[in-house]
Nucleic acid binder design. Structure first.
Length: 403
DNA sequence: TATCCGTGGTA
DNA sequence: TTACCAAGGAT
């Protein structure tokens, strides 16, 4: 018996409902798939560049947030050659506000590498894709399935949740990842060539499947029906044989090990004006907010007081009169909360910028690669009078200012 | 393996 | 308000 015959035999041995899952999933997807900027009309394969760009932006970032950035990037750089020819600085400026800035650096590095090493065409295998900057196991599988039709199942946070519920996976994340990956793969439809009887050229694990649709179906399902809280199980195409639903504790999946919170860090930031120009510098390439623009300031340490922080401005010694703005700017990063005291000062008309710093017109701050925490600092330092004030101002602590 | 990377939405 | 979550990757 050859391997294909064995695979078919095994498929018949599974329970009828379970065997029907891939088909039910795709039928649901064909009726309810979301229309998204990076998705072509049903039945068409998306181009690898669009798939790649959207997948990088969507890493740990919501669909709604990504939309405008994707459109903006695609309009500015319609293909890999255009993006690979752009400067890293311009890419970072366009990325500003989207977060996880190493993604932008890797995006640019990846475009350059695809042009230089692959003649401008993305590799069409998972292994080849994973060798590129910013592309890990998930993204390689996603591009492979969605853009190239390879029969593979990318597993993201949505799919982890759907699958852990469907099979009532008791093992907590992240230990359960390999098991969930294996279970998720059972939701892939049969290779179409094989399902039709196939020719010798059809191989399991190769193209001609709707793997991309199966994966996106699970993602849509996870985001609209199998939600973290109060899942709408009545609308789910897989509700018949969902193990967690049978038990009635859907929301308790996926199991997760508790995580600890980071300690509060404090520091000072200096908003120095020379006429209508602001003193800024560029952060180091690596690490937190790498390569982004900031105003000078102290480092950020646990439980640091203002006076200690103020002493960390030796470059700014020439400035005589500091004014300490009331309140502090607050910001919460993934792994620690931050409080920044803001000091303002005015420099003489012809004052030179200290080494490594530069004066930029306040009017063109939108062109800088400014992370949100710096937008908050500048808005606070300027007294919220500029058009660059915190765009999320709704009052309360989330406005970024607290007394 | 655990930690480090932003930001916005949600209940 | 707080805590969690979101189409993860690099080290």
């Amino acid at each position: 018996m050859n391997s294909r015959a064995i695979a078919k035999t095994r498929r018949r041995e599974v329970a009828p409902e379970a065997a029907g899952r891939p088909a039910r999933l795709l039928e649901w997807y064909d009726r309810h798939r979301r229309r998204l900027p990076w998705r072509p009309p049903a039945g068409e394969c998306a181009d690898p560049y669009s798939v790649w760009l959207s997948e990088i932006m969507l890493q740990q970032t919501g669909v709604k947030t990504v939309g405008p950035y994707f459109e903006k990037f695609l309009a500015r750089w319609p293909d890999i050659a255009a993006l690979g020819s752009a400067s890293l600085d311009e890419v970072l400026r366009m990325w500003a506000g989207l977060g996880y800035y190493s993604r932008a650096r890797n995006l640019h590095a990846c475009a350059v590498k695809v042009l230089r090493d692959h003649g401008g065409a993305f590799p069409d295998t998972e292994q080849g894709l994973q060798s590129l900057p910013g592309i890990g196991p998930y993204t390689a599988a996603a591009i492979s399935a969605i853009a190239f039709g390879r029969r593979t199942m990318p597993v993201d946070g949505n799919i982890e949740r759907v699958v852990s519920r469907l099979f009532a996976v008791e093992e907590p994340l992240p230990q359960a990842k390999p098991l969930i990956q294996q279970l998720a793969a059972t939701l892939l439809g049969a290779n179409e060539m094989e399902a039709r009887g196939g020719g010798e050229e059809s191989r399991v694990g190769d193209e001609n499947s709707r793997a991309g649709d199966s994966a996106q179906a699970l993602m849509d399902l996870g985001s609209s029906i199998c939600t973290p809280k109060k899942p709408a199980c009545a609308l789910c195409p897989l509700n018949d044989d969902c193990a967690a639903r049978v038990r009635g504790d859907q929301e308790s999946f996926p199991r997760k090990a508790p995580k600890k919170a980071g300690a509060l860090r404090r520091g000072a930031a200096f908003v120095v004006l020379r006429g209508d120009r602001l003193l800024v510098r560029t952060r180091p390439e690596k690490g937190l907010l790498g390569g982004m623009t900031e105003v000078p300031g102290s480092d950020w340490r646990a439980a640091q007081d203002d006076k200690t922080a103020l002493k960390q401005a030796p470059e700014l010694k020439g400035i005589a009169r500091w004014h300490r703005k009331a309140g502090v700017v607050t910001h919460v990063f993934t792994h620690f909360p931050l409080e920044l005291a803001v000091y303002t000062a005015h420099a003489p008309a012809r004052a030179r910028a200290p080494a490594g710093m530069r004066w930029v017109p306040v009017a063109t701050l939108d062109d800088e690669a400014l992370p949100n925490v710096m937008r908050k600092v500048i808005a606070h330092g300027l007294g919220d009078r500029s058009p660059h004030a915190d765009r999320n101002h709704r009052g309360g602590a989330r406005s970024g200012v607290r007394s």
